[in-house]
Simulated assay, not measured.
Amino acid sequence: MPYLKLRDGAELFYKDWGNPNGQIVTFSHGWPLSSDNWENQMVFLAEQGYRVIAHDRRGHGRSTQTWQGNNMEKFVDDLEELFEHLKVKDAMMVGHSHGGGEVTRYLGKHGTHRFKKAVLVGAVPPLMLKTTANAEGTEKSVFDTFRQAMHNDRAQFFLDVPSGPFFGFNRPGAKKSEGQIRSWWQQGMNTGFKAAYDSIKDFSETDFTADLKSINIPVLVLHGDDDQVVPIEAAGLKSAKLLSQGKLKVYPGGSHAIHNINIDEVNKDLLEFLRS
């Protein structure tokens, strides 16, 4: 399995699938998951002739379980090292949830010279936390309960999240997938406790407003209007307005995990945006 040894000695696991000469699409996963969460999109686009690249964020999945540096600034610097190593150019960047924040901050900090387009899926920007200037955000007490739940019983907490709000399996009439729940739990438990814990503050309190305003390439924003984790009113609707070339598509009844639940529709939207 491919690993890149980063400047600080940590090792970053990544997947590099498909046509080695094809146009590149990169994927950034959400909390507390790994690149495995994108496998349906990666296989689909690889079969269409694209080269697809996804990494396990430091502390997550098969990457080094780092004690320090579990924050957005380090995450995007890791990405720049990976993209330099793999010679990424003329690509499209895709990110879900916390990974959507990673995409946004990467483009804001390192620029768009490697990328022609980007896609945000149920992404956390511009800011999840409720503040006086962000009344639509989520109270800090909610994220404090996440931290406490991790201390109390991380394994049970990481079972409760996918069994309920993440996939929308708590909604009346929802078709529950035990496989999706187990996959989420496995990915979450493979992530280091410290990285998962630190990332709660990172995804909830990082303000991406300035990054969104600075991005000068087309960005497709995909968001479910029944997202119980990252409500569309606080995220997708605002991001699309802040982006200079933002395009919003709302998934009616869509959960936080539209790429896992509405697989065919998301794949179609990604392919059409790539080809546009």
Rank of each mutant, 00 (worst) to 15 (best):
T138W: 14
L120E: 00
Q187N: 00
N170K: 06
P162Y: 02
K117M: 12
G164R: 06
D153G: 08
E136S: 15
P126H: 01
W184K: 08
K109N: 02
G173C: 09
K116M: 11
F115Y: 11
S141G: 07
P125H: 06
L120Q: 06
S183T: 09
V121K: 08
V119A: 06
P125I: 10
E136M: 14
S163N: 12
T132S: 14
K176P: 12
G111H: 07
G137V: 00
T112V: 13
T131W: 13
V142C: 09
A123L: 03
F115H: 09
R154E: 00
T132L: 15
Q156Y: 10
G179T: 15
F115S: 05
T145M: 13
P126Y: 08
D153T: 01
F166H: 01
T138D: 11
S141Q: 09
G122I: 02
D160E: 14
H151T: 03
D160K: 01
R147T: 08
L127N: 00
L120F: 04
V121D: 04
P172C: 01
L159W: 15
Q180V: 05
G188Q: 06
R182W: 15
I181T: 09
F169N: 05
P162A: 06
G164Y: 05
L120T: 00
D160S: 13
G111Y: 05
K140H: 07
R182M: 10
G188C: 08
D144S: 06
M150V: 04
F143V: 03
E178L: 04
K140S: 13
F167A: 01
L129R: 05
H113G: 09
G179L: 15
F143A: 04
F166E: 03
K175V: 07
L107V: 01
H113M: 12
G168K: 01
F143I: 09
T138H: 08
S183A: 14
A174Q: 00
F157H: 06
E139G: 04
K116E: 06
A133S: 11
G137F: 07
Q156A: 13
A133P: 14
G122K: 02
G108K: 03
W185Q: 08
Q180K: 13
A174R: 03
A133M: 12
L159Q: 14
N170M: 05
W184G: 12
R147P: 00
V142N: 12
S163F: 15
G173F: 10
G168M: 11
E136I: 07
V119R: 02
T112N: 12
E136H: 09
K109G: 06
D160M: 03
Q186T: 14
V119Y: 05
F158K: 00
P162Q: 02
G111I: 07
H151E: 14
R182D: 14
T112Q: 08
K130Q: 08
H110E: 15
P172L: 02
P172N: 05
Q148R: 13
Q180R: 11
G173A: 02
F166A: 01
P165S: 05
S163G: 12
